[in-house]
Design a protein around this nucleic acid. Structure first.
Lengths: 216, 216
DNA sequence: CGCTCGCTTGATATAGCTCAAAAGCTGTGG
DNA sequence: CCACAGCTTTTGAGCTATATCAAGCGAGCG
């Protein structure tokens, strides 16, 4: 299965208050900033919720575990995105920093108008998760990897240049594959000229149209 | 693959206005009721959105297609649930009645306070979709079927008695399996005494604890 | 009574998993 | 600047769970 022991690298990072900041564009008041090192836990499944977070820089994985250690990453969140709000006051997932990450924390109590801002966000994430279900449920390995690359490229500004913050294991656990299958898929996409590597986690999409067609 | 042609059974049902009704508990005004026969389309991917729907009775599947016909059902909605709202004004999925279904239509323009009601709903569906990702991405066939049965049982009131409104093909497309694998999985659960059939789509869960344990 | 349709069962094929090892990278210390 | 250790990633070989293809079965219906 997929029962790797990853936990020892994943302990809570101390929150570093860096003081007041200029107002964020969407939410009213200056809020505390906290910093997380790579693999630091932001919150755990079962923990009390109540805050949500805007990523100033870095990247975050949202995931769940089965009792035998199998992991599914439900979402990646990149710089600029807001995450961590829940329907009830409990977190149903784990959240960890993928790389060194800086978060701006917001309290839910801060204002009632927040739900006005949060609803479109929640709906976007819902559509994203449900689209990802099609990828994981019905596409083969290479199609899943293609869909992942297209998604990241679009979210990094629509360029064909990609800088991955996550490991092959993270990608595998996001796509419902093994690390070996992800590696073989990327190799196949490279050998067929769809992508070009400039380092393990840096690559260009050479045939964006064709790659898009592959996962429709 | 899974390229069945299902489309000929799926054309728009005429909306039957049954006149004003007593106010729904959550939303303010009486709203038009419409009726859909089994397999009737409620809305299509790409269509303009703007309404949302409460299921008075019946059941609905929310799904997406790949160009070659592979289908992934992203969610089932049962009686009492509300669905169909979107972040932008476009539907990103198809919605069809699974059985004879009666919907109460609400216009988004009806009131600004709606987002207060819709946010927790959206968040619950988001958590549901992301949990389902773990099932589809990391669990084997029998575990997926067990998780599906537990989910339906919980949503039908927590009883151990289940009446499925959906076909084996719908279940397969929800779980990312083939119809044959679903059938074999159900047979295995029956033969090992976890469930007992009282008809093709009617069954009891005999060992709820053990079944739950199977998909954790 | 004989269709049709949805479901089950059987036999075989294969995509992706598992296990194993090699090959790159990165950082550290001499 | 090189050597070595500890990672992550890639590559290889064989195995297995599930898909695919095909046939049979049973309930509902004209």
């Amino acid at each position: 299965m997929n029962a790797l022991v990853r936990s020892e690298a994943s302990h809570r990072n101390s929150t570093i208050a860096v003081g007041p900041r200029p107002p964020a564009p969407v939410f009213a008041k200056p809020q505390p900033i906290s910093f997380f090192t790579s693999n630091a836990e932001i919150y755990a499944q079962g923990e009390t919720a109540g805050n949500f977070y805007r990523i100033e820089f870095g990247a975050v994985r949202i995931y769940r575990l089965l009792s035998d250690g199998r992991r599914q990453i439900a979402a990646f969140h990149l710089a600029g995105e807001t995450f961590g709000f829940e329907a009830d006051l409990t977190h149903h997932f784990f959240a960890e920093a993928i790389v060194a990450t800086c978060l701006c924390t917001h309290r839910v109590s801060a204002g009632e108008t927040l739900s006005q801002d949060l609803l479109p966000l929640a709906l976007r994430y819902l559509a994203r998760a449900q689209k990802h279900l099609l990828v994981v449920g019905r596409q083969n390995a290479v199609e899943r990897i293609a869909a992942f690359l297209i998604d990241i490229a679009d979210r990094q500004g629509g360029l064909e240049h990609i800088e991955l913050s996550m490991s092959r294991q993270d990608i595998a656990d996001y796509l419902g594959l093994t690390i070996e299958t992800v590696s073989r898929g990327l190799t196949k996409l490279r050998d067929t000229g769809f992508i070009k590597f400039h380092g393990l986690r840096v690559l260009d999409i050479c045939k964006p149209q064709a790659l898009r067609l592959m996962c429709e």
